[in-house]
Design a protein around this nucleic acid. Structure first.
Lengths: 132, 132
DNA sequence: CTACACCCTGTAGTATACTACAAGGTCAAG
DNA sequence: CTTGACCTTGTAGTATACTACAGGGTGTAG
């Protein structure tokens, strides 16, 4: 059973029914084919795409940024040079995000360390973690 | 000049004037002291705090999550054991975020690679990057 | 062939995080 | 001592991303 109705597809993708319609309106997923009743029939690729959207959102990407990200993997990819430039700037953005998260992680770890050694947490450089 | 008025403080922190008032209402920053005119006077610590909030938001944390993160560094930190548990779960969350971002980064890099070798980009596993 | 769960459309409402405005007070320069 | 940039409050509006109806059609189990 490769094709799913809205309810099943939403459950599989981990979002609400209305979210699928919303993403369709927003052009984030393809309009699914319809049965003769007019019911939407979602292919597994769309489910995978929605799952990706959900996770990317948790990583701090907006729907517009996710649209860009998805466009990078969607054929046809017009100009290769243009594509590379776009992809590379996205990669840079992601690396910077990773670097910043690592700083927050280190700050929290050092807080836990201090706390484990001294028995009480000290005031600590979480705020410094994300300075320029 | 350690104390700044709303306009200057907002500029320093990289947010709008109204955002400072908003964060104050939301309890994300302390109510600043007031001059005899009633003007707010922000200390540098508040500016640092707002900068942190701004960056953390870019990393996909909501204001409520940021409130939690900031609470971890604010004295008094009540129970050490409780504090450690809280901090450690935040660290885990951040590590998972980093792992996922790395997967997206790798997927994009492989796309760029393929494109550089073949001259045209192929369809590629960006979608697979964030699977469970 | 009647329930009842599910689907359709369109529209309206919500939560989050600002952002803009109106109506007025303050302060420093010329 | 006026002008203009800045500040105050409260309230209202916006963008993003859903979320919840209302009013109606569909499909299958008993």
């Amino acid at each position: 059973m490769p094709l799913l109705t809205t309810g099943k597809a939403a459950e599989e993708a981990g979002v609400g029914r209305e979210t699928l319609r919303f993403y369709e309106r927003e052009g984030l997923i393809e309009k699914p084919i319809r049965g003769n009743s007019g019911y939407r029939q979602y292919p597994p690729e769309t489910i995978a795409r929605v799952r990706f959207i959900r996770r990317a959102k948790e990583l701090g990407f907006t729907l517009n940024e996710i649209r860009d990200l998805l466009a990078l993997s969607d054929p046809p990819n017009a100009e290769c040079a243009q594509f590379r430039a776009h992809a590379k700037s996205k990669i840079e953005e992601i690396r910077s995000k990773i670097g910043k998260l690592r700083k927050v992680e280190r700050a929290l770890s050092s807080l836990v360390d201090t706390c484990e050694r001294s028995g009480t947490p000290q005031k600590c450089p979480i705020l410094d973690a994300l300075e320029d």
